[in-house]
Amino acid sequence: MAQAMTRSAPGGSPPKRPAWRGILIGWSFILPNFLGFALFTLIPMLAAFALAFLKWDSYNSPEWVGAANFRRLLSDENFYVALRNTFAYAGGHIPLTLVAALGLAVALDRKLRGVQFFRTAAFFPYITSLVAVAVVWNMLFNPTAGPVNQFLHALGVDDPPRWVASTDWAMPAVIVTSVWRDMGYYMVLFLAGLQTIPKEYYEAARVDGANTWQRFWKITLPCLRPTTFFVVVMLTIQSFKVLDLIVVMTDGGPGRSTLVLSQLIYREGITEGRFGYSSAIALVLFVIVLTVTVVQFRLNERSSTR
């Protein structure tokens, strides 16, 4: 991976300009942010990755253990459980949030009296206290007295799921809650993206007789691709490292049914003091997300050159 990256070709540099000038100008833009990023995030992160090959209790001198942390990983049932749960969460959270956020943004990107109120309302879940989120959603999902199951009963479902009190249905409940919470956040990004689409395109399409649905597919979606790509990548990353909502809502339970990788990293590191092992899990998580991100970049590249 590292080699593939260093080999990457210059993106078809324009003629007449010497390469060093591009490098100089490019880096001069990037440097202010990169310096801060490298010093305060990248270096500690590399140190943490180095820890993956060590045994360290945060205090005494670390001990070189080679791949022992990774061997331990392979035989750790908790790791597999967390890995599976993380993928299940991401698999539900990413598409659902994407659709909900895009739907909200398109619905609220118009001159409508009071649209500001609705946009604010859509963003509110993201700024509502997590305790409130957990208490209210868990109440909605209550197996016996919760409105969700009462509704299902009314629909004729005799044996509705027990949601957060069941190992099979806790994750779906968490996903629904997290979609509700995050949709406003990504809506803001889509709203900004929608502003780049020239009004004239829609006017022209209307003259050609395209209906709302066709305009969405032929204009909105293609023009929104850079934003959509950004949202998809960010959603993927954030889903794979989800932590706070799960901690407050189910704390990984019941049993281990909603235990995710970030939680395991936290527990093994700060709580248990096995910083080497914790870093090894973090490194695996990093590689997974990097792979997914590279694939997304490639796919996006292909579809944009089509």
Binding site: L46, F53, L54, P62
Partner: peptide, 26 residues
């Protein structure tokens, strides 16, 4: 990412990673 400087000879790389890791941790 740490391994990017090594040139593919597995052993050399491993030694390098090891040294870097210990150095950082120390």
């Amino acid at each position: 990412m740490i391994a990017s400087n090594s040139v593919g000879r597995a052993q050399g790389r491993r030694r390098f990673v090891g040294r870097t890791a210990v150095a950082v941790a120390l």
